[in-house]
Every structure is written in structure tokens, then in C-alpha cells.
């Protein structure tokens, strides 16, 4: 039974990251954008875990926990912003927020 190699794990992470990136760039709905960002963060977390497992060390998982923390905080603030945006512009279109340029 051939085991998984590190390259394969990293490629998987890369594919997920690229998909998340496409999602961020294509979508206009801000909630979709936030979801895509979650995908990207998750992908990077996967890369850490793959590397950590390759070493047989706990460090990769620790890094994943930090990323998880960051993602949680980011989603909390991001969704609060979504609420505000919707409250103000009555739409979820990010391009509507371009009036806030500074």
C-alpha cells in the first residue's frame, strides 16, 4: 500500500488555494467572497499539516490552529461588515462599496 507523498498533499493544497482565488476574483457577492477566502485559508492550513505530518512533528498542527483562530476572527469581523454594508447600501455587491474609496 503506497503511502501518500508530501508532493501530492501540497498539490492538493495548491489546487484548493487556486480554486479559492478564482472564487474571490469572480464573485461579486460579498458572502461568496468570504467563503472563498475561507477556502484559501483552509488550503494553506492543509499545506502546514502536510508538512508537519511529513516531519512527524506537531508544529504543523499548531500552525493550523493559529490559522483557524485567525479565520474565526476574520469571519466574525467580515460578517459584521457584511451586515453593515447591507444595512447601508441594501445590496451585497462589493463594487457598490467603491464609493468608500480613500
Amino acid at each position: 500500500m503506497a503511502s501518500v507523498s508530501m508532493e501530492q498533499g501540497l498539490i492538493l493544497a495548491g489546487v484548493l488555494f487556486a480554486l479559492g482565488l478564482i472564487g474571490v476574483l469572480v464573485r461579486r457577492n460579498i458572502i461568496f467572497i468570504l467563503m472563498s477566502i475561507e477556502i484559501m485559508l483552509n488550503a494553506s492550513g492543509l499545506a502546514f499539516v502536510v508538512a508537519g505530518s511529513h516531519q512527524g512533528a506537531a508544529d504543523g498542527q499548531v500552525m493550523f490552529i493559529f490559522i483557524l483562530t485567525m479565520a474565526a476572527a476574520e469571519v466574525a469581523v467580515g460578517l459584521a461588515l457584511v451586515l453593515q454594508l447591507y444595512h447601508r447600501f441594501k445590496t451585497l455587491d462589493v463594487d457598490a462599496a467603491s464609493r468608500m474609496r480613500g
Partner: peptide, 14 residues
């Protein structure tokens, strides 16, 4: 380039 369009910024970053 400072259009206020977030997705163009994301394109720039990418």
C-alpha cells in the same frame, strides 16, 4: 488604479 473596487485590488494582489 485606486478605483475602490475590491476585486481589482484582489487581482492586483494575486
Amino acid at each position: 488604479t485606486q478605483t475602490g473596487r475590491v476585486r481589482w485590488y484582489a487581482v492586483g494582489i494575486a
